[in-house]
């Protein structure tokens, strides 16, 4: 499908000048052939962009509209225009602040699993060569392949207060998922279990992209192995680390969703209700479409701000290889 027809990059600027003169009858290029020449790049992109516009940007616009209405998601009931009422209601609930705080806790709690552990593991396995390395990576990657819902089922058993393996190994009898103080951490550890392998793979890929000459040069200059790691490898790895941190911030709450829904349903006493789950509850439990949309809008705007700040920060911190 990607044949070599458009190998040469057309020079649009120069040709466009030729095109503006195209009103003259002696024009060498008709409008049609100009379209045929300039259109191909867009034709390649059109299917993807159309899908994105119809299935994400349009719903996004609808979220904004819906956030000013009161509606229970039933097509036959009328939508009532409430202006900014939903936002007032939302900001007035103490739930929101708590959910935001819990989301922050989840993100901070996930960072060791998505950044610290993967870096440690990848640095170590880098020295293991050949088959063993591949096997090790495959083993660590395995949980990513288990559907989160299926993972939740087994963790429910591992964390079982009476027969669970975790309590027996630790010699405790904690009811991990049904105690307000431990439920959140259990969710974090299970989510971490699910994504740690992927993060290891990303760090490994990042390490492989680093030119080994730098480390070699530093060693020639007498740097010890840990000095090389600290002052050469890690700074060069910073774009990868920034990428992982950004992913963690943006996706942690999303990763926890299937686990929370199957294991705790946001409880006990909403100790695991983060923003993501709160939004879902508004929409599909309370059937309060307006409130859910308002929360969605705030969530979305908040994330744009956070993402922009992080990318800016990452760009400043990154040490580029080239």
């Amino acid at each position: 499908m990607v044949s070599g027809t458009f190998v040469e990059v057309a020079a649009p600027a120069r040709n466009r000048e030729a095109g503006t003169a195209g009103t003259a009858p002696a024009s060498r290029e008709s409008g049609w052939s100009r379209i045929r020449r300039l259109a191909p790049p867009y034709l390649y992109l059109v299917p993807a962009v159309v899908l994105l516009v119809v299935w994400t940007y349009q719903p996004l616009a609808q979220t904004f509209v819906l956030s000013t209405y009161s509606w229970n998601l039933v097509p036959s009931t009328p939508m009532v225009d409430v202006g900014l009422g939903n936002y007032e209601r939302l900001l007035g609930t103490p739930e929101l602040g708590r959910a935001v705080w819990r989301t922050v806790v989840v993100i901070l709690g996930m960072l060791p699993f998505t950044v610290v552990i993967p870096v440690a593991v990848a640095l170590l396995t880098r020295r293991v060569r050949g088959r063993a390395q591949g096997v090790y990576r495959a083993l660590v990657f395995a949980p990513m392949l288990v559907a989160p819902v299926a993972g939740a089922a087994v963790w429910q058993w591992l964390l079982d207060p009476s027969a669970g393996a975790v309590n027996r190994v630790l010699g405790t009898d904690v009811n991990w998922l049904n105690t307000a103080s431990t439920a959140q951490w259990s969710i974090i550890v299970i989510t971490g279990w699910h994504v740690v392998g992927f993060a290891v793979l990303v760090v490994t890929a990042g390490l492989a992209g680093i030119n080994p000459d730098y480390a070699a040069a530093a060693q020639v200059d007498g740097a010890s192995r840990s000095q090389v790691t600290r002052w050469v490898t890690l700074p060069l790895l910073s774009p990868t680390l920034a990428f992982l941190a950004l992913m963690t911030v943006l996706l942690s709450a999303q990763w926890t969703f299937p686990l929370i829904d199957t294991l705790t349903q946001g409880g006990p006493v909403s100790s695991t209700t983060n923003l993501y789950y709160l939004l879902w509850e508004y929409g599909f439990r309370s059937h309060d479409a307006g409130l859910a949309a308002a929360a969605g809008v705030l969530f979305f705007l908040g994330f744009i701000v956070v993402a922009a700040l992080l990318t800016r920060l990452a760009a400043r911190l990154s040490h580029h290889d080239d």
Binding site: T56, Q62, L66, G283, A289, A292, F300, F303
Partner: peptide, 20 residues
Amino acid sequence: VSLLIAMFPQISLVTPLFNI
């Protein structure tokens, strides 16, 4: 336009998708 969408929290689009 194509890549920005990766940052959207899916959940905030679920209600409108359901409507559509």
